[in-house]
Amino acid sequence: MDAVRISGLTHRFGDGETAKPVLHGLDLGVAAGEVVLLTGPSGSGKTTLLTLIGGLRAVQEGSCVVLGTELAGADEATRVAVRRRVGFIFQHHNLLGFLTARQNVAMALEVDARLSEAARLMRADAMLDAVGIGEKARAYPATLSGGQRQRVAIARALANEPGLILADEPTAALDARTGHETMELLQRLAKEQRRTVFIVTHDPRIHDIADRIIAMEDGHIIEGAHA
């Protein structure tokens, strides 16, 4: 089963005559376990596509099936349920400043009240070990470097065993070497755990981690739509 299956996806911002189309009838499939990079200039609609797949925006037209759930016409509860099965990595890590690294990772697990507190923290510590900053488990984000913060964010995105990981410009706030290291780490963990990864990026230096590169321009996919 494909992790993502999109057909005829069209999206506009605004209403009526002033509506500005950003996506024009996209068709796209991402197979489970694939690491896909989405590139393209600013304003090409990459981020809009990412927010639609992540259930952060309502689908206006066309079909968008994520992890087996159709998001076209889906209500807020359905989209919330999809978000819980997706791991997000943001441009600016977006860690909660008042929580320690392990508490931040555990937040991804608190959505699932079935786990005990001990199990949550154990898994959080294991995830931080896996991203190589186990010794920073009790540090607050403000005391971590940019690369360390992004590693915590990766641990958080992976903690809940998501069916899909969505990353938006994950290397934008990092220097070239750190950015590449972090993405290599993400790719390695994704492959080990057989996770699907969908990365929006400008950064040509991380193209080597992708199984496939999709290029967008002006709301159209111009390259790599199908595996």
Partner: peptide, 19 residues
């Protein structure tokens, strides 16, 4: 790795609304 085991919360729709 160790994390691969255990019940994956992502499998199937949540049967309850934890939050």
């Amino acid at each position: 790795m160790a994390l691969a085991g255990g019940p994956g919360p992502h499998r199937g729709k949540p049967r309850w609304d934890p939050s």
